[in-house]
Design a protein around this nucleic acid. Sequence first.
RNA 1: GCCCCAGUAGCCCAAUGGCAGAGGCAGAGGACUUAAAAUCCUUCCAGUAUGGGUUCGAGUCCCAUCUGGGGCACCA
Length: 852
Amino acid sequence: MLTENYGMGMIAGMSKYPFNEIEKKWQKYWEDNQTFAVTEDPSVPPEKRQYVLDMFPYPSGAGLHVGHPEGYTATDIYCRYLRMNGYNVLHPMGFDSFGLPAENYALKTGTPPLISTERNIDNFRKQIKSLGFCYDWNREISTHTSEYYHWTQWIFVQLYKKGLAYESHMPINWCPQCKTGLANEEVKEGMCERCGTHVVRKNIRQWVLKITAYADRLLEDLDDLDWPESVKLMQRNWIGRSEGASVLFRMADSDDTLEVYTTRCDTLFGATYMVIAPEHPLVSKITSAEQKQAVEEYLEQAARKSDLDRTDLAKEKTGVFSGSYAINPVNGKKIPVWIADYVLISYGTGAIMAVPAHDTRDWEFAKKFDLPIIEVLKGEVDVQRQAWTEDGIHVNSGFLDGMNKEDAIKAMIAWLEERNLGHMAVNYKLRDWLFSRQRYWGEPIPLVHCPHCGIVPVPEEQLPLTLPETTSYEPSGTGESPLANIEDWVNTTCPVCGGPAKRETNTMPQWAGSCWYYLRYLDPHNDKQFVDPEKERYWMPVDLYVGGTEHAVLHLLYARFWHKVLYDLGLVSTKEPFQRLVNQGMITSFAYQRKDKTLVPTDQVEEVSPDVFVEKTTGEPLERIVAKMSKSLKNVINPDDIINEYGADSMRMYEMFMGPLQVSKPWSTTGLSGVWRFLDRVWRLCDDRKISDEQAAIALRKVLNKTIKKVTEDTASLNFNTAISQMMVLVNELYKIDTLPREIWEPLILLLSPYVPHLAEELWERAGHEPSVANMPWPTYDEALTIDEEVEVVLQVNGKVRSRIMMSKDATKDAMLAAAKSDAKLKEWIDGKTVVKEIVVPGRLVNIVVKD
RNA sequence: GCCCCAGUAGCCCAAUGGCAGAGGCAGAGGACUUAAAAUCCUUCCAGUAUGGGUUCGAGUCCCAUCUGGGGCACCA
């Protein structure tokens, strides 16, 4: 008992800084006084309205992670800063509360997902509130509530009516043992995570959203967004627009044609075989009697592979001959058609022309199955020994011979179009969005299947279509969702003809709720429409969106897609939802590594002397490295513990002090205690001495003005670590004098307030003011007091520093040069040499370039 | 295999192409103390992963390599 409490009691007990009391007190004050409630005040001009959004969390059973508060603290500081600068700031928080873990938890424990989810939300809310963020909690939403998903369903109906939702048969990961579909993350190395059975692909009826219809706009509109270039690049690559040609190959022995997409139609003379994906619709038709058994075996083998297996580059190429031949349209040659899983049905037409001489994958396949390789681009290698994938002049290519790539592509497309054998084509990597899940814990898709009327949407006035309560979350066994077994719910009447009908049993993916939550925050309690257009126009678009880089593609692309659909329907006023995006880096942790690179759980490590670590049981020396936090390494930091021990303000400020927001950085508890110590120093400034109304020394006032300037600029640009460093400089200066001048102290409290709001409120009150410091104007500075009159000028010879002198900041170039040339130390370096060049940077340096 | 990001002091990190150091941690010394802790003051520590290049001048820009982290759908 005693030893356990020793560490915690040490700091808390010694402290003169009662963060625990202070933090509770001010959190209650803000709540009681609704300090951060925000309204659409029409008197605030549009440029003074800011919408600052955090990616809302999935409320997992594990509770808040130290990674969450990083982004939340950053936006909180920024919002408080904006408020103090006269902005009307919308800053909401909510929960992305549908999701697989709650359902799996229900399967394991029988706890209904609604119960566990709401329990988790309560815990998350409490944890988030304990950090003192300035959210307008009146706007909290949770995607699993029927008040919310009413409108998720309503938007789906709009998509459906617009023809953007369609049914298709698509494969799922199917576990034959559990008789259930699995998410990708539930498949480990091709096996079912739960029972270890080999997972197979099973085609089932699914709902798909036509995101490809928006591919061009999703691509083009990226240009105007203030997003990290790397994220834009990832989205561009994901959309993957390419220009090429569609080419028709006639089958040799039937009337069927195979259409292929290629970006390199200029290499058509080198196409020596074709490959179609195992899922291609012509597979059964073109398979010859002799090859039937081999093909069927191969198809079965391919069906057992996950996408990951098929995309693993290290693997051997596999495939099987179909027994049929196609005709190469340019030269009339018969070429074999193979079936292989390195061709994906989801890209292009699911069929390729193989040019082994100039494509590495085709080359490997040709070598393995002994298919001919014909060089059509003159390269620097023997194509029988390796593929030549660079550009070259065409050879063995009839009318293309002698041409370069660009001209040959044009010539070939013209040739194909003339003969109706092909045409120019644009292709995208982007695929339509598989939108249905065979799960219970998601938004029911509001459609009815009627034997007479077909598919009928649930009438809008009957929404929300609520998720029925149940006690069994077991899969249906057929691949359908557990909803299929709830008879009273599934069986309904057709909204059109009134006859008996069945409800759609698929539910929506977790993405659905997060596709539009930023709009619901604008008007969270509206039961007539998903958002009031006036409120939408008041706030949108989101001015700053902060979240993890793991959402760089999917979430952000899906939300942009929905937003564009809503825009086309005239329901929102902006083309794009998120004008500016910032990704916060990951908070990692230290881990300890043996010589053989294996990792040791943190509780097995002893620090024998500073920065020397050994494994407790063996005494083996260990190297400290940086790793992701993980349960198995026992290096996960729990925010609750940190807040208890050091307080929310220390936690907030430390996370901002660790380094730049955008980069990943390791958690260090000693680093945290350093920030705690800084806050304690701030506290003791006014605890130990009286606030004085006398004027401060000019040197101190200069430091203050420099500090205000730096903190202002760095807070506005989200460079919080350097802003904090400057505040430390000012506090260190204050420690050098015995008084506490009010003219320094009060601006310092204001500068600190976005970072450590609880402490700042308390200090503000103790300085004799009414709360709240959050409503005070941001301090201003006098530019003249941020400039030093005397500066140190560096004197260089050939770019190397040889001497330094103090000069007026306004010294002319000539004066600086003259001073340099008369400097005794510099003379030694230039005497007797020829001066080649003289460079003078005013206020900074003189560089004299000499030659012997 | 491809794409993206990052390598600065023992550690976390600063540095408009211009003195490698703002701040913190750890270390050392001193003050205070009967002593320790806490606190305060002072202080040590490098040429920026490696090799080239551009430049009067490179941590910063360019090329190549190495190491680490993250992402990926064999994209024809």
